[in-house]
Design a binder for these strands. Structure first.
Lengths: 183, 183, 183, 183
DNA sequence: TATGAATGAGTGTTCATTCAT
DNA sequence: TATGAATGAACACTCATTCAT
């Protein structure tokens, strides 16, 4: 890839993320191109279909999330690593929310993509949460890789399903509860 | 309002909520009218601008949330009431998420509307949470009316701001922490 | 169909035929709508896809051709009827030529359509030519319904195939030949 | 012109002819360049405007037609020469049809071009047909140079004009007529 | 009054053409 | 000089909104 092309590619993914965040997944290609400071044609050379751009942004998000997990494990204590990772995960899920409809379309066309990305996330989660569990910092009755199943949908789906909320919300709400004496 | 007009009004708001949930806030007026089983013309008689429909759905959501608070206080113990209310709040915020962009537009045109609705929600929250605090079920260091500031954005904004997450996420994550022995 | 809608439908097919003739099958929808004196939206209400418009024009052409055959048989002597019909056929084929590419696309999606229309034409041809043959006005060694196979491709395909031209062109060229003495 | 440049020039015209035949006169420059196996930049070095390429293909066609006339006169008997030439003419006209719109545009800008090419064709026709007439193989009541006026439009124009068809079609249809006894 | 047809501005996408590599 | 990336005008198509029926 030529230097200028590479530069534009990165500029475009960044611009797309910002524009999607600001205007929703329905933001116009024109708007993304303008934000990136290039012509629409350039945008389309890199991303022939709108969906390709959405997908690129999403894959980039997943990659960043995985890197966060690696960095957290390398630089932080077990519990803070979990905190950092889950903060990042929520940020990731929130971003995904912006263009969920668009994403669904992409996944329908390429189910393998969905699987591949989910796997990457599950591995990252397991890395961070499993370590914390082995260190006794996280209750063992939570299946590490399963956390994404809980947090993800809560963050992205417009209507929490019953089954998921009965396992998730109590835990989250727990943080609000006054506790007798602990630490 | 005549009975049949009222019937259509309700049918339309209900249809709009469903359609927005299924297709996002960008769903077409045609789609809403079709779902409600009326012509577009009728839809426009009740809601002259698209934004009026969005607003009606939203107001309806707020009303339902407030009613949930009243019912919770009347029928449940302090802590379960908080749980029920916050579950409802999350559902509400999640729904709102669907047409956040559309809503912003409405608020820009009519700032008083935003204020009025926020006030209703804050009162409902205070009703439920304040009661639980007085009963010793909720830590007193959380300002009741401020909960919406924490949970709301988390549920709706695509990128949690730092300031908000440092106050909110730790509490939520707290639920994951292994605790010595409590109850 | 409401009166105004019907009026517009006819206006649109007529406009499309003219515009396609003038600018080729690639003519813009905008141009067709302008010619018909309606907005693009109206054009799209009647013909949701570009291809639907092309198809409508084509079906209309076939219908006209079939009617010409009926009229010719009713009003003319056997040989003049053949002349009139073939003149109409050439006109028809020439028109078809204008949007052949577009048509191919339509046929690929709906092969039954192709079959159905071809059948109509073959029947019409047989009606006219068969009658002339029985009257001794047309050489019996030409298979009536097969004429379309000869004339059609010649008129529409950009490159005559060898097999077809050896049977067709000599006959056509025959008209140029000087003949000893006949009548 | 350098050898390699010449090679590319020919490659491009050939590629263009094929692509135009396959996809119509609206085929993209990218497609032509790809077919020729060069970059668009190279295509544009040889043909600064799209129209220049169209024109080159057309001139090439005319040249080929003229050569066919010369060869026919040199190698064939008068009547077969007419047949061969007219077959070639139809082929030529059919090809021209593919990018008729594009061509019109070129002629509008450069009327002299149109005149020059028509003259070449008329001379070639006269060469072949005149010879056949002098040999008694073609009826003398057809003006040689006028044949192009008849056949050309029939092959290219989407709607035969009345004036032309009354002179042309009867002659062509003649080939279908049963004739008493001749040879 | 309810319906659904008509309108046209706006968006995704393509492609001739220019220009950096 | 050849390549292919960048540009933006143009076109198919959608949908909020208006208006004839």
């Amino acid at each position: 890839m030529r230097a200028d092309a590479r530069r534009n590619y990165d500029k475009l993914v960044g611009a797309a993320r910002e524009v999607f965040a600001a205007e929703g997944g329905g933001a116009s290609m024109e708007a993304v191109a303008r934000k990136a400071g290039v012509g629409v044609g350039t945008l389309y050379r890199h991303f022939p279909r709108r969906i390709d751009l959405v997908q690129a942004v999403y894959e980039d998000d997943v990659e960043e999330l995985v890197e966060t997990a690696d960095r957290a494990v390398a630089e932080l204590e077990p519990w803070p690593a979990v905190v950092a990772f889950l903060e990042a995960f929520v940020r990731y899920a929130r971003t995904k929310r912006t263009f969920l409809n668009e994403l669904r379309e992409a996944f329908d066309k390429d189910p393998a993509l969905k699987l591949r990305l989910r796997e990457r996330i599950d591995e990252a989660t397991e890395l961070v949460v499993g370590r914390a569990q082995r260190a006794g910092a996280v209750r063992p009755d939570v299946e590490g890789a399963d956390l994404t199943q809980l947090l993800g949908p809560m963050c992205t789906s417009p209507t929490l399903t019953d089954e998921q909320s009965v396992r998730l919300l109590p835990m989250i709400l727990d943080g609000l509860r006054t506790r007798g004496d602990v630490g």
